[in-house]
Design a protein around this nucleic acid. Structure first.
Length: 270
DNA sequence: CTCCGATCCTGATGGC
DNA sequence: TGCCATCAGGATCGGA
């Protein structure tokens, strides 16, 4: 379940192998991902060079000479560096093969990921409504406070909404709320200014630590260099229902919030 | 506008 | 051992 730290880890792993490289071929074995892989990719991409590679929210943006490839890892996707000669597995749906024989290979068993192509990323519908980057300077406690006013939805759900803040998924929403001492079920509008300051700080700190650990590998996430992440060992509440809170030893609770679980310590978080 | 549930997909897991 | 149900979840969509 790649969230911002896993996508950032992927970017750092593949950037040295992709930047400045020219595409020889695109191989699409399974075009039906979250959205169909554009057919023009195989004809338009060869001959173009990767001029830039950036992350926006959970999207990877490969800036080519005449367009931008948008990649999203969905919840089971990974993008790794292989050799073009390596035999693809059952879930290796898309290859981008460079002139030097290096290959960027998208593996995605559940096919919630996406590969898209645009000439105008600034106006792409997936990217235009995104909230601020949580590690950027316009994401602050003041911003959180202002945006949550009069909002009745649970703060966990507010954080998962990419229009509020970009790149946060269930793992890091729960972990940051634990670090800030706020229950995931609390109505967003009930956060005080001080809560928002702590939450913004907790999100930044949690994401940075996760990036440093190479992300979280729950099942089979791998960075671009094929290394797993190690942040799962540092998770305080996510997936730890029934275990003692690491701060106060109270049993961690899981509650159903919408379609997904929220985890919290009933003593440390209010 | 806001909120919430349904939806896509398939491997892993747990109960019987 | 095998079968079946359930769960995980990012982002969009439609209905309330």
């Amino acid at each position: 379940m790649p969230e911002l730290p896993e996508v950032e880890t992927t970017l750092r792993g593949i950037a040295p192998h992709a930047l400045g490289k020219s595409v020889r071929a695109v191989v699409v074995r399974h075009p039906r991902l979250r959205w169909p892989v554009p057919k023009q990719l195989a004809s338009e991409l060869p001959g173009q060079t990767v001029r830039g590679l950036v992350r926006r929210s959970k999207y990877l943006l490969f800036e080519f000479d005449r367009g931008t490839l948008i990649a999203h890892l969905g919840m089971s996707g990974s993008l790794r560096v292989t050799d073009a000669g390596e035999v693809p597995g059952k879930f290796d749906h898309v290859d981008i093969v460079f002139e030097n024989g290096t290959c960027l290979r998208l593996r995605d068993p559940r096919r919630f990921g996406a590969i898209l192509w645009t000439h105008d990323p600034a106006r792409h519908p997936l990217l235009t409504h995104l909230g601020p980057e949580p590690l950027g300077e316009d994401f602050t406690g003041a911003y959180l406070f202002e945006r949550t006013r009069k909002r009745k939805r649970a703060i966990r759900d507010f954080l998962l909404d990419g229009r509020s803040v970009a790149g946060i998924g269930n793992i890091y929403a729960n972990e940051a709320l634990f670090a800030a001492g706020i229950r995931p079920t609390r109505a967003a509008g009930r956060l005080t200014r001080a809560d928002c300051t702590r939450l913004a700080q907790a999100l930044r700190a949690t994401l940075k630590r996760a990036i440093r650990a190479g992300g979280t590998t729950l099942r089979d996430f791998r960075g671009g260099d094929d290394r797993p992440g190690y942040f799962q060992q540092r998770l305080k509440v996510y997936g730890r229902a029934g275990e003692p809170c690491q701060a106060c030893h109270t049993s961690v609770r899981a509650v159903r919030l919408g379609q997904r679980s929220a985890f919290f310590c009933p003593r440390c978080q209010s």
